[in-house]
Design a binder for these strands. Structure first.
Lengths: 146, 146
DNA sequence: GTTTATGCAAAGGTTTTGCAAGTGG
DNA sequence: CCACTTGCAAAACCTTTGCATAAAC
């Protein structure tokens, strides 16, 4: 998770930000938690690496990371805001309302629709991180899931 | 806004809920506020009709309305959760990040994509109220918008 | 050295909860 | 009447903010 550390540091420098141990810790934490990291989860994970880290630092740092495009945030269901490292390939998420499983889908699958919206309404969709809820394959088949 | 009052009352009854003045007031308020009603706006509007109504009642009532499918909620931008009466025709929203304008689009435009997701991933999308952000026609053309 | 970032603690705001009183069916 | 709802007040929760200290550059 750290092969790209240099890139990240570069990105911060280019934005006039300082590279602090806390910021690297938080970045690692977002990676470690994986796909949909709530602030609480990031805080807990970062706390393992640096027990002295403070909650406000997490808030401020995530805000800064979002601003420079290192991280995106999205609102998913009931858990409040979640954070995710921005990857090369934009993608979206399917959240199963029955079992809670989350899977990713490539952005390409949405593009035809986004194109159609652009044609019909002149609206340029920039949603980088869409969350679709519904029922996944497993839960759709079996009733024993509920 | 009250031609369907009977239907709403029926729906509540069918769910074993009681029809109280407060609930009707809140339902009216959600209608009056229109498309994207924040809790605060609903509270303020309901307060006009019934100055004694309490905030917790708004919270609890909206939660109940969501459960029985009378109302949907969605997270839009920075304003937190917004509520909306469930209408016959499902639709989604385009939120312009520049001017903040919100427009509705019919659900049909999304269906091809939802179908494709179902085919490819076996995932049955049930999102009734999607929020797409981007740039609207006006703001895309002119820079003078900001 | 300067400027920026951090940690702490306190403030701010929103949402939830327990309970007695009130009300719909 | 009984069960469900309400309003109130307090609690719980999450997020933001001010400021002195510490660290990056």
């Amino acid at each position: 998770m750290s092969h790209h550390k240099i890139e990240y540091e570069d990105l911060m420098h280019r934005h006039g930000l300082r590279v602090t141990p806390q910021r690297l810790t938080i970045l690692d934490a977002v990676c470690d938690v994986g796909g949909h990291a709530t602030l609480g989860a990031i805080y807990r994970t970062a706390k393992l690496a640096d027990p002295a880290i403070s909650r406000s630092t997490i808030y401020r740092t995530l805000e800064v990371f979002c601003e420079i495009g290192l991280v995106t945030s999205a609102e998913i269901g009931e858990d409040g805001k979640v954070y995710e490292i921005v990857e090369a390939h934009p993608h979206h998420h399917l959240v199963c309302q029955v079992c809670g499983e989350i899977q990713q889908i490539p952005d390409e699958i949405m593009q035809p629709t986004f194109d159609r919206i652009k044609q019909a309404f002149g609206f340029d969709v920039e949603t980088s991180h869409l969350v679709l809820s519904g029922t996944c394959r497993n839960c759709r088949g079996s009733i024993s899931c509920e």
